[in-house]
Design a binder for these strands. Sequence first.
DNA 1: TCGGTGAGTAAAGCTTCTTTACTCACATGT
DNA 2: ACATGTGAGTAAAGAAGCTTTACTCACCGA
Lengths: 158, 158
Amino acid sequence: MGAMNDPLERTELTFLLGMAFQLVLGEFVRGVDAEGYRELRPVHGFAFQVLRHGGATSTELADRLGVTKQAAGQIVAYLEERGYVRRVEHAGGGRRRLVVLTDKAHEHLSVAGRVLHELEERIGERLGADGLTRMRAELAELVRGLAGNELPPLRPVW
Amino acid sequence: MGAMNDPLERTELTFLLGMAFQLVLGEFVRGVDAEGYRELRPVHGFAFQVLRHGGATSTELADRLGVTKQAAGQIVAYLEERGYVRRVEHAGGGRRRLVVLTDKAHEHLSVAGRVLHELEERIGERLGADGLTRMRAELAELVRGLAGNELPPLRPVW
DNA sequence: TCGGTGAGTAAAGCTTCTTTACTCACATGT
DNA sequence: ACATGTGAGTAAAGAAGCTTTACTCACCGA
């Protein structure tokens, strides 16, 4: 503990966060790919999270992902071609179309959830159950501190 | 505390990490941009970290950044055009050239360091000094757990 | 001297995003 | 009824930043 020759002790918090995220996401992608989902990138997973409960319009999706609506439209088209989403009538009328997940996407979500759960368990073995809980709480507090009450977008690029 | 209606409490650790990193990096970029470094992207900052002590060859830089040597070469060319790095003779001879930081880059590093420090302080006010220390320790432990003893690369894309 | 190896370069291609510019459905005011 | 506005979606071109493929060049060792 606290050994100053450990390079990580001297690493800026920002970079620590970056490395941690990079590693965890890498493990996640590896796990999901191994289950046969090589056609899906992280951004698609984030889109699924947004669409998960009741769907959303492309424009709403764009806002939540922090990209333009054209980019969101491309993502939706990609997912639609592969059978992960469907566009249905929107109750609000207008040109709006509601993008909703198909069964195939929900299957994917359950596989991805399992992978995430296993990953979190592995991390928990390393940090201890308390450490994991504290880390979650601290991260949540950090996010609230910087983002206020709105959920921040999860963008696929820096 | 522990309110189950807080969406962050139900968010996967992976996504919490992603949001936290996204937010912190965003603040960092905003701060550095405000100091007049709009021509530099995060990847340039990571490159500076690699080159900081004694420089490196393009190929070594590529390894540390997790990109191809061609991409590293492009990054070096970009930084060289703007006066942040110089290519000098390499003691090892061959075709090797040592990429080293100029004074301009070191100035940038000191500004960036200040921005990072202020940011960490803001986060510390929110988490408390203990919370910040614990978070650093937990993140470091997580990184060690997933990356072993080598420092993981910080790639600019997912 | 003849490969072999490792660093660097060149050019084309690809993916994924943005920018610019449009179409269309509906709401609102006159 | 009709013009005008607004918000959702689409189309096409462009830009950024990588990778891939294919090379050059300097040195080493058999």
